[in-house]
C-alpha cells in the first residue's frame, strides 16, 4: 500500500497560464513544481499526496493545481479554496472546481458563528453554512485550519452534517490573533499557549466519526528543532483520542524541503511516537488517507 503525504503545496512561476497571488515566501519568480515534489517523494518511497491550493482562491488561481491533477491523476488529489466574496453563495464555484478535476474538497480558515460561547447557536446563520451544506450534498471534504475564535464552532457544523468528511489541519491547531510571524526560511511560526486549548476544542471532535486530523505543521508550532520533541505529547494525545484510523501524516511541502528536509519528515511519526504499533503506523502513513480521502489505485 502506498504511503501518502496528506498535505502540501505546489505552485508555478506567475504566468498567463498559471496566475497566482504573490507573498513573502511566494514571490512571482519562485516555483515549487510538482515534478520537484515527485523527486522528493520517490526518494522517500511516498506514492501519493494531497495538493492544497494556495496563492489565490479564484477558479483561475487554481490553474497550476488543476494542471498537476490532470497530468498525474493517480498520484494526487487536490483541495481548493473559496473566495471570500463567494462564501455566502459558494455552490457554483465548488461545483466548477470539483467537476471531475481531482479536487475533492475545500480548505476553510473560518467558520463564522457567534463569538460568545454562551450565545444561542443556529448553524443556519453561520457564515460558512452553505459551504457545509453543499459539501454534504456533493460528498466533498472540508479541510479546516480555522482561526482560534472559531475552534469551538466547528463542532456544531460537524454535528449538523455528519456525512461531511472533515480533516483538521496541522495537529488541530487553530491560530490565535497576533500569534503569527515568519522564521528565517519565510515559514509561518505560530505561538501556541503552553497548555494547548485545542485539547478542549478540536481534539474533542474525536468523538465524531467523520472527523480526522493531520499530524503536520510541526515546524510552525514547535519551540524545538527537528524532531520537535516538545510535540511528542500532542502526538500521543492525538493517537489516544482519534486513533490511527483517523490520523494522517503530512509534510506541508515545500516549506520543509530545506529545513529539516523531506526525508526527515518521513521519519517523524516514528520519532515522536516510538511505541506506535505497526498497523497504526501503516494507517497514519497512508491507510487513513487512502480510505478517508479515497485516493485512487496507483498505476
Amino acid at each position: 500500500m502506498p504511503r501518502i503525504d496528506a498535505h502540501g503545496h505546489v505552485f508555478a512561476k506567475v504566468s498567463r497560464e498559471f496566475p497566482r497571488e504573490t507573498g513573502g515566501n511566494t514571490p512571482a519568480d519562485r516555483e515549487e513544481s510538482v515534478e520537484k515534489l515527485m523527486t522528493y517523494m520517490a526518494a522517500s518511497d511516498i506514492g501519493q499526496a494531497m495538493l492544497v491550493q494556495m496563492g489565490g482562491a479564484t477558479a483561475a488561481h487554481h490553474a497550476y493545481v488543476l494542471h498537476c491533477l490532470r497530468t498525474y491523476p493517480d498520484r494526487f488529489l487536490g483541495i481548493g479554496l473559496i473566495p471570500e466574496d463567494l462564501v455566502a453563495s459558494p455552490e457554483e464555484h465548488m461545483d466548477r472546481l470539483t467537476d471531475g478535476t481531482g479536487i475533492v474538497g475545500f480548505r476553510l480558515g473560518l467558520v463564522g458563528g457567534p463569538r460568545d460561547p454562551f450565545d444561542d447557536v443556529d448553524v443556519r446563520t453561520f457564515l460558512t453554512y452553505r459551504i457545509w451544506k453543499h459539501a454534504a450534498e456533493k460528498d466533498l471534504v472540508l479541510w479546516l485550519y480555522v482561526r482560534a475564535a472559531d475552534a469551538h464552532l466547528i463542532a456544531y457544523l460537524v454535528d449538523a452534517f455528519p456525512q461531511v468528511r472533515v480533516v483538521l489541519n496541522h495537529l488541530g491547531i487553530c491560530p490565535g490573533e497576533g500569534k503569527g510571524r515568519h522564521d528565517q526560511w519565510g515559514r509561518p511560526q505560530i505561538d501556541i499557549a503552553s497548555y494547548n486549548p485545542a485539547f478542549h476544542t478540536t481534539h474533542r471532535l474525536s468523538t465524531y466519526e467523520n472527523v480526522t486530523m493531520k499530524l503536520s505543521g510541526h515546524y510552525a508550532f514547535s519551540k524545538k528543532p527537528y524532531p520537535y520533541e516538545d510535540l511528542a505529547g500532542w502526538h500521543r494525545a492525538a493517537l489516544n483520542s482519534f486513533g490511527a484510523d483517523r490520523l494522517m501524516w503530512a509534510t506541508d511541502f515545500p516549506w520543509i524541503y530545506e529545513e529539516p528536509g523531506y526525508d526527515k519528515l518521513v521519519d517523524l511519526v516514528e520519532k515522536l511516537t516510538p511505541d506506535i504499533m505497526p498497523h497504526e503506523y501503516e494507517a497514519v502513513m497512508g491507510g487513513t488517507a487512502r480510505r478517508f480521502l479515497r485516493f485512487p489505485d496507483l498505476k
Binding site: R115, D116, P117, R147, A148, A149, A151, H152, C174, P175, G176, E177, G178, K179, I190, D191, I192, A193, P197, A198, F199, H200, T201, R204
Partner: peptide, 15 residues
Amino acid sequence: WLGRIAKGEAAATYY
C-alpha cells in the same frame, strides 16, 4: 476571556 479565546490562549469550551 473572549479576547484570550481569539488569541488562542484559552478554550471556548470552559471558562
